[in-house]
């Protein structure tokens, strides 16, 4: 599928269904696709499962989506922060489910989804509450735990520039989860600062090739 360069964020998030699993990029606010999330709030999809490293910061971006009550479940590595009051309130009121996943497993489970890996054994979390009930296996004399992919219906990511084919480059640590989430969702939607003509991005520096990208919108 070729990429669609959207004129508006509303067009970019059109068709996201209730009950979807939405991968949302960003680490804190760096790389957080705030304008796409605002558009998702307006679009109205609810009963969402959101996969993101954190569970919202302050009152904007993911926190705003949570505050609207659209999210049934958060899958993340680090919900508790000094500015995660929106999530904290929902969690303490029993209004949101939480699955805490070690950060490396979160990334690798999405990588597996994007790479067609059925499951993988890793050592992270062995002997801890986060591996309870999971299948384990001795490999090379060490206990490993079986982890399954996390696949998204949609990924919302923030990148720096796209070309008109949908190739993406990022800026500094705002890259974070964007490239791996782009591979792991059925539909990947990227907000960028700028869409440039095809051929103007150096092929050597493209981080997310266009094959992973479905819709792009400049914000």
């Amino acid at each position: 599928m070729t990429v669609t360069i959207c004129d508006t964020t509303a067009e970019a998030v059109a068709g996201i269904r209730d009950g979807s699993t939405v991968l949302i990029g960003g680490f804190g606010m760096a790389g957080m696709p705030v304008q796409l999330i605002d558009a998702l709030i307006d679009q109205g999809a609810s009963d969402l499962t959101v996969v993101s490293n954190n569970a919202g910061n302050g009152d904007t971006g993911l926190a705003a989506l949570l505050a609207k009550g659209r999210v049934r479940k958060m899958i993340c590595s680090f919900p508790r922060q000094t500015d995660s009051w929106v999530f904290d309130g929902l969690y303490r009121a029993g209004k949101i489910e939480l699955e805490v996943v070690p950060q490396g497993n979160l990334a690798e489970r999405m990588r597996a989804a994007g790479a067609g890996i059925g499951a993988f054994y890793g050592r992270t979390g062995v002997g801890t509450p986060l591996a309870e009930g999971k299948e384990t296996r001795e490999i090379d004399g060490r206990t490993h735990v079986l982890e399954f992919p996390i696949k998204g219906d949609v990924a919302l990511i923030g990148a720096f520039r796209a070309d008109r084919m949908g190739n993406l480059v990022y800026r500094k640590t705002a890259r974070n989860f964007g490239p791996v989430m782009a591979t792991a969702a059925a539909v990947t939607i990227a907000q960028v600062s700028e869409v440039v003509e095809t051929g103007t991005l150096d092929p050597e520096v493209i981080v997310t090739p266009s094959i992973y990208v479905d819709r792009v919108v400049a914000v």
Partner: peptide, 11 residues
């Protein structure tokens, strides 16, 4: 009452 948060510690 605590909200668990692991980040990268286990990795």
């Amino acid at each position: 009452d605590a909200i668990p948060a692991v980040g990268g510690a286990m990795d």
